[in-house]
Write a protein that binds this DNA or RNA. Structure first.
Lengths: 339, 339
DNA sequence: CATTGCATGGCAATCGGTTGTCAAATTGTG
DNA sequence: CACAATTTGACAACCGATTGCCATGCAATG
C-alpha cells in the first residue's frame, strides 16, 4: 500500500504535487511548462510525482490565467449537410493532431446565431473557423478583428480564407457537357445568400459566353435533396438537356425526381453535381461531379488558424488558400439527346 | 459620444459592471445569478449596465469557481462513419437547446484514446456521451463512477445507456426474407469488438432456429464501404441467397461489388442493411434496411445525461432507454432465386 | 423605546493554474 | 577569502467568476 493517495477521488492538482515534493506550486508549474527554469533534480522529482498522481492540468484554470483555451470553434451553417461532415472531419483531425479541442456549433443558417456564437466563443476559444458564413462583409471583418479567424468559402478582405475553387471547375464541367453535344445547359443555383453559388454562376456564364453556348440560371434552391424535385421539374420545363447543379445534395434529389418522372439520366438529361460528397459515387446513376478536397480544406483552415495563433513557428501567415477542384466523370452525364 | 467605453477591446467583466454601478463585484454576480438576493433597484441598474457593456460571463472563470463547465463531451469511434453524423446531429441539437456546448472527439476506434480523452474531459466537461465504446466493461464502469456518463449502444450494468434495438429488428428482417422464399441467409458481422454486432447475431440465430431456417455468420468486417467487397465475395462464395448486414456502409459496399461482379440485386442476392443512414434511400438499388432512430437516440442520450446533471427537475433518472427499430423495405430485397 | 429579524450588499477566500519579482543558494572569479 | 554573477525556488498578485460570512440599516414587534 502506498503512503500517498495515488488515486484520490478528486483529480490531482499542481498543489498536490507541490506538497508531495515539498516545493511551492509555482515551482511545479515551471517544472512542467518551463523545464529549463528549474533544477534538473527537482524537475525530475516533480515529473515523477506528476506521473504518480496521474496529473492532468485543469484546462479551465489554465485558460483563465494564460488566456489560451486550447479550443477552436468550428461554425457550420447546417450540420445536416454531408458537405460539412467532410469539413468537420478535416478540422477535427488536424486540431486533434495539434492538441486542440474542437467546439462544433451549428449556426442553423442564421446570421444572428452566428454572431452571438462568435461573441461567446471569444472567451472560450482561441480562434474560429467559419464555414459558409451568413454574416455581412462588415460584420465578418469586425468579428475577425476581435479574434483569430479563418473562413471557408467566403472571401472577405483582410480575413484569412480557404476557398474551394469550384468556379474554375465549372468551365471544365461545361467543356465536358459541350464535348458530349449539349448546347442548352442550366445552372441550378443554390441559396441566394451563398457567395459560392454567385461566384460559380459568374464563372459559368463567362465561360459559356466565351464558348458561345447558352446557359441559363434556374433557382435559387435550398441545399437539400428535397429541393431536387423542384429543381428537376424546373430543368425539364426549361427544355435544357444538361444541368450544372449547385451541390450534390440537390443533384441527387434531381436524380430521384427525374427517375420518378420516367426520365432517364443521362439519356434524357445530364446532371453535374458539385462537391463529391459521400453518396455521390453510389447513387443511381453515379454522379458526375466537381470533386472538392473538402476534408483537406478543413485541415488547411486549421493550419492557417494555428499559424495565426502561434506566429513563432516560422513561415509567414498565408491569408488565402485556394483549393483546386476537378471534374469527376461518372454515369450521370452522357451524350445530348438527338432531336 | 458615450462617457463609458461601450465597446472596449477587451470583453466586459463583472468588475467593469461593478465599477460602473458603484457596487461590489459580488453584488453584480448575485444580481445576475440570484436576482432575488439583490434589491430590485440595484438589480435593474446592474442589468442595464450589463446590457450596455455587452457583458457575457467568462465561461472559463465560471467553470473554475462553480465546477460546472457547461460542456458535454461526445465521443465517437469514427467521425467518418455517417451513422455518427446522425447521432452527432441529435446531440448537438439537444445540447444546444439546453444551453450546453458540445465537445466532439473522435476516439479513432482506440480504447486508449477513449480512456485518455475521458480523463481529460473529466475536468473540462460536465459529462460525456460515449457511442459504441471500445472500453472493457470494467473500465467503462470505473469511468462512469468518475463522471456523469451515458453510453449509446453499449449496455453495461450501472451505466445509463441508450440502446438502439436493432437485435429485435433482425427477426423482422429474417421474416421478411423468409416470406420472399429465402432459406439460406448470412449475417455479415461487424467488428469483433462491437457489442451491437454480437447481440444482433445472437438475436438472429435464435430467431433462425425458432423458424427452422439456416443462418450462418460471415466476417468480421470493418464498418466501411470498402469492406463491402470482401463481404460480398464471401457471401457469394458461401452460396446464400440473402444477407443481413451489420450496417448500411458495408451493405452499400456489397451492392457496388455485386454489381461489378455482374450479379443482380435483388434477383441474385438480397441485401438487408442496418441503420438507414444517409444514402441508403438513393443507392442502387435503394437499400432495404433496419431503420434506426439515430438522431433521436442522440437527443435521448443528452436528455438522460442532463437529467443526471440536474436531478432537481422532477422525474426519476431513467438509466436505460431502448429505441425501437423497424424494417424499411426498399429495392435491395426480392424473391429468392429459383433453382 | 429597546430588541429581534430580515433584507441587503461588501469583504475575502476559493477554484487551479501562470508569471513577475525578489531573496537565498550556488558557483565562479580576482 | 571576499565579492560578483548566475541559478533556483518561494511569495504573492492575478485571471473572472462564486459564495460563505459578516456588518449595516431598516422595519416590525413586544
Amino acid at each position: 500500500m502506498s503512503t500517498h493517495p495515488v488515486a484520490a477521488d478528486r483529480p490531482a492538482t499542481i498543489h498536490d504535487i507541490a506538497a508531495l515534493c515539498g516545493v511551492a506550486a509555482s515551482t511545479v508549474s515551471r517544472a512542467l511548462s518551463t523545464p529549463e527554469r528549474v533544477n534538473i533534480h527537482t524537475r525530475q522529482r516533480i515529473q515523477a510525482a506528476a506521473v504518480e498522481l496521474n496529473y492532468t492540468p485543469n484546462s479551465q484554470a489554465k485558460a483563465l490565467s494564460s488566456g489560451k483555451t486550447g479550443a477552436v470553434g468550428v461554425l457550420v451553417p447546417d450540420i445536416t449537410n454531408p458537405f460539412y461532415f467532410d469539413l468537420i472531419r478535416g478540422t477535427q483531425l488536424q486540431l486533434k493532431a495539434a492538441g486542440y479541442t474542437q467546439l462544433l456549433v451549428d449556426t442553423e443558417e442564421s446570421d444572428e446565431v452566428e454572431a452571438s456564437t462568435m461573441e461567446q466563443l471569444r472567451k472560450s476559444a482561441d480562434g474560429v473557423i467559419v464555414a459558409a458564413s451568413r454574416l455581412s462583409d462588415e460584420a465578418l471583418t469586425a468579428a475577425a478583428a476581435k479574434m483569430p479567424m479563418v473562413t471557408v468559402n467566403r472571401d472577405v478582405d483582410g480575413v484569412p480564407a480557404v476557398i474551394i475553387d469550384t468556379p474554375s471547375a465549372t468551365s471544365q464541367a461545361l467543356d465536358h457537357l459541350i464535348s458530349l453535344g449539349h448546347s442548352s445547359v442550366a445552372y441550378i443555383a443554390g441559396p441566394a445568400t451563398s457567395q459560392s453559388s454567385a461566384r460559380r454562376w459568374e464563372a459559368l456564364s463567362e465561360a459559356a459566353e466565351a464558348r458561345g453556348v447558352e446557359v441559363r440560371v434556374l433557382g435559387n434552391f435550398a441545399p437539400k435533396t428535397q429541393s431536387g424535385a423542384a429543381a428537376a421539374d424546373a430543368a425539364v420545363h426549361s427544355g435544357v438537356t444538361a444541368c450544372i447543379v449547385f451541390n450534390d445534395l440537390i443533384a441527387i434529389g434531381m436524380l430521384q425526381r427525374l427517375r420518378e418522372r420516367g426520365l432517364r439520366v443521362p439519356e434524357d438529361m445530364s446532371i453535374v453535381g458539385c462537391d463529391d460528397i459521400f453518396g455521390a459515387d453510389f447513387c443511381n446513376p453515379p454522379l458526375t461531379t466537381m470533386t472538392s478536397p473538402i476534408e483537406q480544406a478543413g485541415r488547411v483552415a486549421v493550419s492557417m488558424l494555428l499559424a495565426q495563433l502561434n506566429p513563432l513557428a516560422g513561415g509567414g501567415v498565408r491569408n488565402r488558400s485556394v483549393m483546386p477542384t476537378y471534374l469527376t466523370v461518372r454515369g450521370s452525364t452522357g451524350a445530348a439527346p438527338q432531336h
